[in-house]
């Protein structure tokens, strides 16, 4: 059998398999509980607990934030680690080490994209402060209003990229060095891991933790949720920035 024929057979086989898969899944969805009913199996004591006890116990008015950073904090720690290890993998693949000097790094800068456009650059300059402000607002109010560390961090990261494109590499890398990036990420993740280790330990062993809910509704409340949101935001922003810089030129300035 020649290659073309084999490819054809493979394509037909894949299509048939996918169609069977879709048919089975559609049949299955028809048997699932209908959309939007309040008596579905997933509306149970767990949801009731998160909504009715959660805000007072954790101090977070936003039940989703309270859930992911208090009750299911281990998942969220894992999630931040997913970001961290993916950044590490991108470093493994794209970081240029060793004898490559700054000149080579600048020479291969922007291999895969067009260079700056004056209109875009000027718009970025106007937008940057507002974007940073918005990101910080979303992070700090994660326990009170929609948002939280992940979304706030993504916005701050986007702001960093805008800043980079508005003011150029030289100005950005005056403060965003490889050392700063590494230290700040490690510090944020370590704080998260250590703080949560403490609450896991006290929780599982029935000890009293210093964490307190404070007055729900105030910015400085909700125990560890606010600091953890800030840590998560730092990790997300740093990951986004470092991935961008790796794809763009393969390394930080030394």
């Amino acid at each position: 059998m020649n290659k073309q024929k084999r490819d054809r057979v493979y394509a037909v086989l894949c299509t048939v398999l996918t169609l069977i898969f879709i048919a089975v899944m559609l049949f299955m969805v028809g048997e699932l509980p209908p959309l939007g009913r309040a008596d579905n199996p997933d509306i149970n004591e767990v949801v009731e607990f998160y909504m009715e006890e959660g805000p007072e116990e954790t101090g977070a008015l936003n039940a989703v934030t309270g859930m992911i950073l208090h009750y299911r904090a281990f998942d969220t720690l894992g999630e931040s680690c997913v970001l961290f290890v993916s950044a590490v993998c991108v470093f493994i693949l794209l970081r240029i080490d060793g004898e490559a000097s700054n000149d080579t790094l600048v020479a291969i800068d922007r291999r895969y994209e067009p260079t700056g456009d004056p209109i875009l650059t000027q718009t970025f300059k106007v937008l940057v402060p507002a974007v940073f402000m918005f990101g910080i607002y979303i992070t700090m109010n994660g326990h009170l209003s929609p948002g939280g560390g992940f979304s706030g961090g993504a916005i701050i990261g986007a702001g960093l990229l805008l800043f980079l494109n508005a003011y150029g590499l030289e100005k950005t890398e005056r403060f965003m060095t490889s050392g700063l990036h590494r230290r700040i990420t490690a510090l944020a993740l370590c704080f998260y891991a250590i703080a949560k280790s403490y609450t896991f330990y006290t929780g599982a062993n029935g000890l009293k933790s210093f964490e307190s809910a404070g007055t729900p509704g105030a910015i400085l409340s909700a125990g560890l949720i606010l600091p953890l949101n800030i840590c998560v935001a730092i990790v997300v922003a740093m990951t986004i920035y470092s991935m961008y810089i790796m794809l763009r030129k393969g390394g930080f300035n030394k």
Binding site: M51, E56, A63
Partner: peptide, 28 residues
């Protein structure tokens, strides 16, 4: 959306809000 207000505290009715769990899962 599953976000309560300060005035609700103490008498929250969970039937008024959507399920917060899938939101967390989608985030992950």
């Amino acid at each position: 959306a599953p976000i309560v207000t300060v005035s609700d505290l103490g008498h929250i009715d969970s039937a008024l809000y959507t399920n917060p769990v899938p939101a967390g899962l989608v985030l992950t």
